[in-house]
Amino acid sequence: MRPSWRAVLFMIGVVASIVLVALGTAQPGISLRDLGNGALLLLAVVQIGFTLQYLLKSPWWVNELGRIYATKSVIMTLVLWQVSASVISQSQYPGREYWRLVIYVGGALAMVWLWWSLRQYQRRGREDREQHGDFRTQRRIWIDTLRELAHKGRGA
């Protein structure tokens, strides 16, 4: 069976991380801190790419979960960019403390909203399953789903 591009990309990331750590420990001019800062900046760039694609090409506004996920994605993008800006400027840029306060409080509020909505969504799903005679626990559903996926993966 041929591996998926996602699995290949993941493995490339693992190997690249190992190589970067080895370089950081073996090369006197390269510090692990600098490599970590570069990785943080890369994460911020990838996060903004993901967030923009989600906001521009997905109908996130049609349901509550989509709106919440869009909000969370924007907040996480802002957090990563704020931290990256702090790392690049050694924590000194105009308005840093104000940006931090607004982004972090907004992030905490968005995560509480997301968490509450997730609990409501899960409760409604459980009630809907029970109305249709499915009284399995979430653990049992996961086990059954994983078994089904494993069975499909064997080509059966």
Rank of each mutant, 00 (worst) to 15 (best):
W5L: 13
L41R: 06
V102I: 15
M11R: 12
I88T: 08
P28M: 02
Y69T: 12
P3V: 13
A156N: 10
G107P: 03
I30D: 00
T77F: 09
G36V: 00
I30P: 00
Q138W: 05
L80H: 02
S91E: 11
W60A: 05
G107I: 02
D34W: 12
A108G: 06
L149E: 09
L109K: 01
S84G: 15
D134I: 11
G24H: 04
Q53L: 09
W5H: 10
D144R: 13
A156R: 12
Q138D: 14
L43T: 12
W142D: 11
V46M: 11
S4N: 04
Q47I: 02
V102N: 04
V79H: 06
A16T: 10
I12Q: 01
I12P: 00
S86C: 07
T77G: 09
R119V: 13
I68L: 10
Q122N: 14
Q90T: 08
S73G: 15
I141W: 06
D144W: 08
W115Y: 12
P94E: 13
G106C: 09
I88V: 14
S17P: 00
R126W: 08
F50L: 14
Y93D: 05
Q138G: 06
Q92N: 12
P59H: 13
P94T: 08
F10W: 09
L56Q: 05
A7I: 12
G95K: 05
G107S: 03
L80Q: 04
T25D: 04
I30K: 01
W99I: 12
L32S: 07
H132V: 00
A44E: 05
M11Q: 14
G133L: 00
A44N: 03
Q120V: 13
A39I: 11
I88M: 07
I103L: 08
S31G: 09
H132W: 07
Y121S: 08
G153S: 15
A108D: 06
D128I: 07
G24W: 00
G66L: 02
M1Y: 08
L40I: 07
W142T: 08
W113S: 02
L55Q: 04
Q92T: 09
E148M: 11
W81K: 02
W60F: 15
G106A: 05
T51D: 08
G38S: 02
G38T: 00
K72Y: 09
R147Y: 06
W99V: 14
V14L: 11
W115V: 10
G36M: 02
L56I: 07
A110L: 03
R140F: 01
L43R: 05
V102D: 03
A108H: 01
S58D: 10
A150E: 14
R2H: 06
K57G: 07
A110S: 14
P59D: 14
G125D: 05
A85P: 03
Y54Q: 00
W60N: 05
